Simulated assay, not measured.
Amino acid sequence: MRRLQGEAEATPTTPRPEPVPRQFERDEAAVREELLSGDFDPGSIEQGDEIHYLKPGQPAAMLKRLRRGQYSIRSEIDLHQMTEAVARSAVTLFLNEAIRQREYCVRIVHGKGLRSASRGPVLKRMTERLLRQRGDVLAFASALPAQGGTGAVLVLLQGH
């Protein structure tokens, strides 16, 4: 930078005030207000949580191997865009058909429930309840990140 002739170097006589993060303060206030005034479901905080289950009497190593992705996935279903009732029926039919076809390791993509707002992960919870109720489910666990992470579940089925 070049100075003009006769220009003196200006030095401030008083220090500048510290900047005030007003936008940050407004954002924080808006979040507090939204949490206090809106329909808030604590379950929605747990959207990223892993789910898993091992049928009583089954070896712990089975669940460990499933969680590590060591079983070959034979079939899958994606529940995105389905209502809870339609998804429940689709999962039931899918599992019955998988057993009939002898496909004992399957993936159910239920999503993370990010568009369910305060209701939380509706399809994920429905899938978990349904799987726990079925006698032919040996184990299930959230998928590895490359397989859908907490938006999908791997299921081991018992053959007949």
Rank of each mutant, 00 (worst) to 15 (best):
I108A: 01
F140H: 09
K124A: 12
P56H: 14
K64L: 14
L123I: 06
S75R: 15
R2Q: 12
R74I: 03
R125M: 06
K124W: 02
V91L: 08
L130D: 08
G120Y: 00
R22F: 13
Q101V: 01
A139Q: 10
F24E: 09
G120H: 02
S75C: 08
K55W: 07
G149M: 06
M82C: 07
L35S: 01
G38Q: 11
A141N: 05
R74P: 00
L123A: 12
A90F: 09
G111H: 01
R74Q: 14
Q158N: 13
A61C: 02
L157Y: 00
T13C: 13
L156Y: 00
R68H: 06
Q81Y: 02
E103G: 05
A10V: 08
R74G: 06
A29S: 11
F40P: 07
P15N: 03
Q47E: 10
A30C: 05
M126P: 03
G43L: 15
T11P: 02
G57Y: 12
K112G: 10
L35E: 07
A143H: 09
R107K: 02
T13W: 14
R3E: 09
R88A: 11
L4C: 12
L144T: 10
F24G: 05
D78K: 04
S142W: 02
Q70L: 11
M126T: 03
Q147Y: 15
A90T: 11
Q147L: 02
G38H: 08
L157E: 05
G149Y: 07
S37N: 13
Q158S: 06
R119D: 06
L66V: 04
M62F: 06
R125Q: 08
P17L: 12
A61L: 15
S44C: 12
L93F: 07
V109T: 01
L79M: 05
E46H: 15
K124E: 10
H160G: 13
L114Y: 04
A152S: 15
R65T: 04
G43C: 15
D41I: 07
F140E: 07
G57D: 08
A141V: 00
L114V: 11
L144P: 00
V109H: 07
A90Y: 03
R65C: 11
M1P: 01
R115Y: 15
R2W: 01
V86Q: 14
L144C: 10
G120P: 08
D27H: 08
R100Y: 11
L144W: 07
P19R: 07
D41A: 13
Q5E: 08
F40T: 08
G6K: 04
L4W: 07
A146T: 05
Q133A: 15
Q147V: 03
C105A: 14
D136R: 03
L36Y: 00
E97H: 06
Q81L: 09
S89W: 13
S75I: 05
V20W: 05
V106D: 00
V137G: 05
T83Q: 10
L36A: 11
P19H: 07
T83M: 04
C105L: 06
G6P: 00
A90W: 10
M1K: 04
A85I: 08
T127I: 02
H160D: 06
G120S: 13
A8D: 15
E84I: 06
E28N: 12
L130I: 11
A85S: 11
V137P: 08
R102Q: 11
G48H: 10
A139W: 03
G113E: 13
E46V: 01
G148C: 09
